[in-house]
Design a protein around this nucleic acid. Sequence first.
DNA 1: TCTATATAGCACTAATCTAGTACCGATTTC
DNA 2: GAAATCGGTACTAGATTAGTGCTATATAGA
Lengths: 159, 159
Amino acid sequence: MIRITREADYGILLMTYLAQAESQALSAAALAQQRHLPLPMVSKILKTLARAGLLTSQRGALGGYSLARPPAAISAADIIGALEGPIAITECSEEGHDGCCSRQAYCEVSGHWPRINQAIFNALQGISLLEMSRPDPLQPVQFHPLRQTVTANAADHPI
Amino acid sequence: MIRITREADYGILLMTYLAQAESQALSAAALAQQRHLPLPMVSKILKTLARAGLLTSQRGALGGYSLARPPAAISAADIIGALEGPIAITECSEEGHDGCCSRQAYCEVSGHWPRINQAIFNALQGISLLEMSRPDPLQPVQFHPLRQTVTANAADHPI
DNA sequence: TCTATATAGCACTAATCTAGTACCGATTTC
DNA sequence: GAAATCGGTACTAGATTAGTGCTATATAGA
Ligand code: FES
Ligand code: FES
């Protein structure tokens, strides 16, 4: 169902909390307690985010993590990308397989995968941590169709 | 890395092929051979797509599958949704858990997940099978940044 | 200096999910 | 009636994810 891993899920929960405490450094233990998440996971995730440059860490007593950039300058794509690697929706569009996939000779879609990835990346890039950390969104769970193809029926896809 | 399953991947490859043969019915075996994919998988995928109403099937000798709607009226979201269920990026935003997830009481992101899902859904909805089945896209593998947050660096995300 | 606190990094296990296969029944053409 | 082809379900092996554990390193304060 096009899902992100739980690590990335937790990552966003943690980042939103840090966005609210803006400059104050919070320890992994404190964050785990606030968000009611398992401490080892929280610890692992924060380490990864720090290595990716999204958080700055302070070791030792009274240490902890804080955002490396203002919340408006961090996007959902940044966080997910840091925790799951580059956003590539199919094996085909990943880099590193010598640049191309084994089915390429028989495939006419190949040029379109990057477009699809790009579309998703743009969608995630357009959502900032600042927006996500606002206590309540203006637009709740309501459905809001924008661009649809001809006969597609929104009710079939209860997001 | 936000990936779709291989089933959905194959599904798109098969649908694009069917889009090119438009009205002509093709058997699972023929499609598997053309796309060089394992027949049992192809068979399974086509069954699912038919049940979802995206394909019409004809049984018996000379039978096969053909598109139920014109390619312009089928989107990437339709295909992926049919093969992987509704597009829900996290456990939290799925329906059916009595409507809400266990972390809700301690979570301030909750209202934003639907927006994120919606963004991705719109991105996929905006790509039609007609576009995907064109032999070669106008815009190849080139990078094309649209909406970016402040300091995000496109080069960090080699889609 | 010593100790408590906290991150850094790596290795490991169990549970879950995916990919792929197999089988049997139903339907249509010849 | 025989051959082709779809319909549905159940099953297995492999890959991935979720979560844990341990040790080293750095900092603050007594
Ligand atoms: S699926 Fe890889 S080239 Fe088309
Ligand atoms: S993660 Fe489920 S309510 Fe926030």
